[in-house]
Design a protein around this nucleic acid. Structure first.
Lengths: 226, 226
DNA sequence: ATTTGCGTTAACAATTTGATAATATAGGGA
DNA sequence: TCCCTATATTATCAAATTGTTAACGCAAAT
C-alpha cells in the first residue's frame, strides 16, 4: 500500500462524481472514477484502489452486486468498500453491510463528513498494520507491551511509575513536559501528590539508566533527549 | 483478544442503554455499560473492551472528552470507538471523527443497523486472527486441543484454570498481561473472584512446570518468557 | 458413601513501591 | 555577590502488591 492512498468512486451521477473527486483530491488522495458497476469492477482490477466508494443504484450492475463480486476475489478481500447511496431504507443498508462493506453512507452527504469518514477508515487500517508498542531511540529501547527497558542490550528494571514517566517523556523526544502534564498523564487527575515526587522519580530513572538523557528545564518541566 | 468481543456502552438514557445492550447480547457480545463519561473511563480501564460506544451528551465528561482522554492512553490507542449521538450537526460529527473515533452514528438508530455496523467493524479488525491450537516454545509444548502441556517430552497435568492461564500467557510470549486482562480472559466478566486467586494459580503453574518462565511485573501483571 | 481433585478464599509473610520530609545544591535576578 | 526560588538528593516509612500455605466447599468419580 502506497503512501498516497488511491480511491475509486463509482456513481452514475456526474455531479456527485465531480464533487467527491474534487474534495478527495484536495485532501491529497489519488482518485479514479467509474460511471457504472461494470466500469467499477474494471477500474478496481486495473488500479487496485485502497478504498472503493460505491453508489448502490447504477446502470448495469448495482453497487451491492459489485461489492459481492469484488469480495469474492482474493485481491479485494481486504479492500475498504463503502456504500454511498440515496437509498436509506434499513433493509438495503443492512444488506450492504452484510455484503462485506465497511460503511454505508447516505446521500446527501457533506463533503467534509465524507472526508472525515474516509480519513477515519484509513486511520484504522494503518493502526492495525503497525501494532508495535516499541520505542527505540539509539541504544535505548522502551517496550510498552513487554514493560521493559533495554539500554545497549541490557535489561533495566523500572518500577511502574518510573516506567510510565520515562515512557511519557520518551514518547516525544525533545518536547518539554510541564510538571502538570506529567502529573496528569502518569498520576491521573484524581491523585494529588507533593511537589517533590516527580523529582524523586526522575532521579531514580537517571540513576538506573546511568545516562544523561533527561534534561531539567527550570521553572517549566523536563524533556527527554539523547 | 478473546473470541467473544466485549463492548462498552456509555449513555445517560437508561432506555437506550437497555435496548442496545439487549440487542448486542442477543448477538453474542459481552456487554458492559456506563451512565456517564467518568464511569465510561473507569469501565474502559477496568474491562478493556474491544469496542466502546459513546453517547456525546452525557453528564460530567461528554463523549468527545472521553474519547480524547482514552485515545491519549496507549492502552486504548487501537480500541474501536464509535459515537452514538442525537447531535447530527456537521461540526460535531467531524470533530468526533477527528478525535479518533471509528464511526459516528446518529440517533435514532435501528438496532439492526447498529448491529450491522458493529459487525462490520469487527469484521475489519479480525483480519489478522490466526488461532493455532498448538504452541511450541523451546522445550515447552502447549496443545489447546488436547488440553495438554509437555515439557521436555514429559506430560504435565494442569487443571483447567491453570491450563487456561498458562495458555493465555504463552499466547504472546513477552507480553505483559494485566491482572484485569487475565481475569477477563480466563474467568470472564461475569465471575468475580478474590484478589489472590490469580497468584495462587500462578504459583501452582510455576510449581508444576518447575521452570522459571512466568515473570511478575509488580503493579502491572504477569508475563511468560522462557 | 467415600474419595479425590479443583477452584476459591483467608490469613499472614515477604517484598516492593512510592510519597514525603529534611537537607543540600544550583541558577537567575536584584 | 547575595538572595530567593526551583530542583536534586537522601533516608525513611507507610501503603500497596504479591507470595505462600492451609483450609473449605463442591462436584465428579469410585
Amino acid at each position: 500500500m502506497s503512501i498516497v492512498k488511491k480511491i475509486l468512486i463509482a456513481d452514475d451521477e456526474p455531479d456527485i462524481l465531480e464533487i467527491i473527486q474534487f474534495n478527495l483530491k484536495a485532501e491529497g488522495y489519488n482518485v479514479v472514477t467509474a460511471k457504472n458497476g461494470d466500469e467499477a469492477i474494471d477500474a478496481a482490477k486495473k488500479n487496485q484502489p485502497d478504498l472503493i466508494i460505491l453508489d448502490i443504484m447504477m446502470p448495469g450492475k448495482n453497487g451491492i452486486e459489485v461489492c459481492n463480486i469484488l469480495r469474492m476475489q482474493p485481491a479485494f478481500k481486504d479492500t475498504l468498500i463503502v456504500f454511498l447511496s440515496a437509498l436509506s431504507d434499513e433493509q438495503t443498508e443492512i444488506r450492504g453491510l452484510e455484503t462485506g462493506a465497511d460503511d454505508y453512507l447516505t446521500k446527501p452527504i457533506s463533503p467534509k463528513i465524507l472526508l472525515s469518514k474516509v480519513n477515519a477508515l484509513f486511520r484504522r487500517i494503518n493502526k492495525d498494520k503497525d501494532e508495535t508498542e516499541i520505542v527505540q531511540l539509539g541504544d535505548l529501547v522502551i517496550d510498552r507491551e513487554k514493560y521493559m527497558v533495554k539500554f545497549k542490550g541490557i535489561d533495566i528494571i523500572l518500577a511502574r511509575k518510573e516506567f510510565e514517566l520515562l515512557a511519557l517523556l520518551a514518547s516525544k523526544p525533545g518536547k518539554v513536559f510541564l510538571r502538570n502534564e506529567i502529573l496528569n498523564q502518569v498520576w491521573g487527575t484524581e491523585v494529588i501528590v507533593g511537589d517533590r515526587t516527580i523529582d524523586v522519580h526522575i532521579r531514580k530513572i537517571r540513576q538506573k539508566l546511568n545516562l544523561d538523557c533527561i534534561t531539567t528545564v527550570k521553572g517549566v518541566g523536563y524533556k527527554f533527549e539523547l
